[in-house]
Amino acid sequence: MMAESAMCDDVIELAAGLAFDAIDEADRQRVEEHAAQCPRCAAALEEFREVAFALGKAVPQVDPPPRLRSHVLLAAQRERPASVGRPRRFVRPRLRLSPAWAVAAASLIVSAASLIWVGRLENEVAQLRTDAVAERDRAARYDSMTEVLGSPQLAVRSLTTAMQDVHSYGTVYLDPRSRTGMLTARGLPPIEVGHAWQLWFVRGNERVSGGLLWPDHYGNGYALIQVPPDLQSFEGIGVTDEPGAGSAWPTTPRIMGARLDSSN
């Protein structure tokens, strides 16, 4: 039988995998059963889960499609939580026509109408709430842009077209202090649905992604970008058409660019 400390060491190694869903079911059960009895391993597992949460919380934030909300709520309506519902079984409804039933049916209709009305009101409130959040977020983004633009170390470079017959242009604002920046672009040509424009920092044969920009219908847009810590070692910037999730390396020719090692 494995000594307790050796067991804990083994479980803690597995706990890292459990926090990331990277172990099989048998190991998962072993870790959870052991952690239920062992405060040290339980604490380690909790810490690993906190790291997992931090990674999960820091992904790019994207609004779910509005219709998803009603899908989820409708699906929930069709079920009841296990703790409140008896085991579900099919019971054939018996229909009895009587005056009492007529009254009940009428009151049900009134109740249903009230529910629909309340539902509409709730939808309106939810929409207002969503709008308020969007406005607050927009204000926060402006704050962030102001911070970038107000940096004493701000470097500004104009992006010019790198292709004949394409009249795109833009500007990058780079703040090495906060390692953030902004890209603005105008006149970008149409791209495939689901694609985005990706900004690259160029250093010799190396390309470092700075971020993605989704243009509007007119080919204009802006994006907050990340600036590499050793910005001064990069000689240029390029922008390419890439799949919306971003590429690890440019997969299409540069559409516009700028030099970084000159004052422009």
Partner: peptide, 13 residues
């Protein structure tokens, strides 16, 4: 790469 950006990002994010 942990460096890609996203115009839909919230500042907190």
């Amino acid at each position: 790469t942990s460096s890609e950006g996203d115009p839909q990002l919230r500042v907190g994010a």
